[in-house]
Write a protein that binds this DNA or RNA. Sequence first.
RNA 1: GGCGGUGUAGCUCAGUUGGUGAGAGCAUGCGGCUCAUAUCCGCAGUGUCCGGGGUUCAAGUCCCUGCACCGCCA
Length: 510
Amino acid sequence: MKETFYITTPIYYVNDVPHIGHAYTTIAADALARYHRMKGQKVFFLTGTDEHGEKVHKSATQQGVPPKELADRVVTRFQGLTPALHITNDDFIRTSEPRHYASVQALFQKSLANGDIYLGEYEGWYCTPCESYWTDLQLAEGNCPECRRPVEKRKEPSYFFRLSKYQKPLLDYYERNPKFIRPESRRNEVVSFVAGGLNDLSLSRTSLSWGIPVPGNPGHVIYVWYDALTNYLTGVGYPDGGERFDTFWPADIHLVGKDILRFHAVFWPAFLLSAGMTPPLGVFAHGWWTVEGQKMSKSLRNAVDPYEIVKIYGPDAFRYFLLREVPFGLDGDFSRKALVHRINSELANDFGNLLNRSLGMLGKYFSGTVPSPGQPGEEEQALRAKAEDILQKVDEAMEELELGRALATIWELVKAGNKYVDQTAPWALAKDPARRERLGTVLYTVLEAARICVLLSAPCIPVAAQRMWEALCCEGAVEKAVLSSAGRWGGLPEGATLARSAVVFPRIEE
RNA sequence: GGCGGUGUAGCUCAGUUGGUGAGAGCAUGCGGCUCAUAUCCGCAGUGUCCGGGGUUCAAGUCCCUGCACCGCCA
């Protein structure tokens, strides 16, 4: 097993406030980061904000404030996701920070020095009011696609990146690293895009001031995507290097939405190869959410506010729903009805109730003291084998970033636990004093199975898992537990006295 | 227009290299239990596996073709 794990979210553009899409990427990255920590790996988890570029500059101008001030205001909305969603990012990077300027300029300098970045001339259709260039194809009946006003042919000096030179190296890299782009279907799209030929990429603008200046030519501002992508290096200490950088680069996973896959799977590795750096090991593109069956749009004003959902349903329910509802990589639909349904049937009825009924019987029959299990019978052996199998299967799913499948797998054990209780009918055993040892074995077994479920679900539903972990009198924080030892059967402390805990997942009345 | 993908129970989808009567979850109906947040467990289904043709002893699984939908590119 690799000893380190570096995962990132994209940096979020401060022109917008957080919605379900941001929350989704961040939550998924968090679940993966938490899981890898529980595997005992050293993890670095980075998120942050993208603060440069035309759109931010324009919004700021409209509001009559400097762009930095706008960014300072909006960034708090993104930073607030960390406590609200119980995210465990190790750093939060803002592209307006000095450390990032140094990083972008250093990387740029490398490619400038070896000739992969050269000064040329950019030509396109320019819309003065929008301060934007458009290509022939983007034009709407010859006019600006955004404001519909006429455009003019315009030229400006620009630095270019010799992307064309990297077609072959990129295809080689994809070939050698079949899991670099996932899911598979996205990989095929990227490969055919690159195979179709690459044009050099304009890397600077003279028409904009809100950004990072080209080293040695401050009249130019570096292209926002070059600036933004480099955050993944800055976050681990580039260009100074140091322990953090040596430990974590190259990144294991850049988690992205499918709309920005090309930047991460084509441009970014090319920039890095040019600068003599190792490209990331993986880019995973997840799907998009519709809301109540409709596309999210500003005109429909149907964006889901993560803060509001968390206020109503709590962070675990929100996290669980997003991760469980859809196979990771595909699109999904967010609806209150589906959310409530999953909360009630899976969290409350299946999982919450398993713990609750077990603790209830333990209190009733053993005054809450965990008995020592006797000789395991066939049913006990079966449940234990199931738990061990599930541990393995969850690991396979998590390694493939299949978070939904991982949860579905955990729930197989939850259901097996409930079935075991019905099969062994402890309430019947309790009526016969001669079968007291058997009763103890049954309760130990079901509680132990529940403990494994808590352990495995902790990366996805950390707050609830911690409460359940404590209810089972397990030591320390569940997030600090290491799967290889804590996942071993028999970790439930014998002789401990467990109180009947408060309901962890309350049902939601519809 | 080019490349790629998908089409399986009411819904969302699994279905290894072709081979026992085609599956899971949800929803539906019926039955059982009572420890539990009226929770849990069991049983029952229903399917021209998109249409057509072909290869084979044997195809949801391979080939050809048609239709529909989706993605990427132009």
